[in-house]
Amino acid sequence: MGRDEQVPPELTIEVAFALPERQKIVTLAVPPGTTARQAVRQARLDEHFPELPAASFEDAELGIFGKRLPAPERHVLRTGDRVEVYRPLRIDPKQARIERAARRSRD
């Protein structure tokens, strides 16, 4: 690389995932143009959560600071972003409300 060429700056971002009993936040330095999906791959969450299938992270819904990303494979990150990897719901929220209401009416 010549003297006048500059190395592109890296962005500092975080990738976060949590189970009910523990969480992991991985800080990464990534090149400009990195997408949310690429950052999740680079975080290697499957190594921190070996009890989960790797597809749990590859196919997961993603968000930035609590806002779901409709197209994480196209969302380009900015420095300081925290990519959140969402777990799939175990039960539909509407069904959970129905079941809670049914239990309360029996009590």
Rank of each mutant, 00 (worst) to 15 (best):
K94V: 08
A18Q: 07
L52W: 02
P8I: 00
T12G: 07
D81C: 09
G63C: 07
E99I: 03
A54F: 00
A29T: 04
S56K: 05
A60H: 05
P9H: 00
T27Y: 04
G80D: 07
R100W: 05
V30R: 06
Q6T: 07
F17W: 09
A102E: 15
D92P: 01
G66H: 14
A36Q: 01
D46W: 14
T34I: 01
A18F: 06
D81W: 07
T27P: 06
G63W: 13
F57R: 12
E61P: 05
I25M: 12
R87I: 10
S56Q: 08
T35N: 03
G80M: 02
S56F: 03
L28Y: 12
E5A: 08
V83F: 13
P50G: 03
L89F: 05
R41Q: 12
L52V: 02
A54C: 00
H75D: 04
R68W: 07
V30A: 09
V15Y: 10
A54H: 02
D4T: 05
V76N: 08
P53T: 05
R3Q: 10
R78H: 13
R100H: 07
I13M: 13
R90N: 05
R103I: 15
F49C: 12
I25K: 10
A96E: 07
V7M: 04
D59F: 02
Q38M: 12
E47H: 12
F49H: 14
I13T: 02
V30G: 06
P31S: 15
G66M: 15
L89G: 14
A43P: 09
T27C: 13
L19K: 10
T35V: 04
V85Y: 11
E5F: 01
R41Y: 03
P32V: 00
R90K: 10
M1Y: 06
V76A: 15
E47W: 01
V15M: 13
A102L: 05
I25W: 05
A18K: 08
K67S: 09
I98E: 08
D107C: 05
R106L: 09
V83G: 13
E51T: 00
R90M: 14
P31E: 10
T79W: 00
Q38D: 15
E99G: 01
P50T: 07
L19M: 13
V85K: 14
R106N: 10
P32I: 01
L45P: 00
P50K: 08
A60Y: 02
R87V: 05
A39W: 02
L19A: 09
R106E: 12
L28M: 07
R103C: 02
E84N: 08
D4R: 14
G80S: 11
K24Q: 15
F17A: 05
A18H: 06
Q23C: 10
G80E: 02
L52C: 11
A16R: 02
V40F: 01
D107F: 03
P53I: 03
L62Q: 14
D46L: 09
R22Y: 11
P70G: 09
K94L: 14
S56W: 08
L62M: 04
R3E: 06
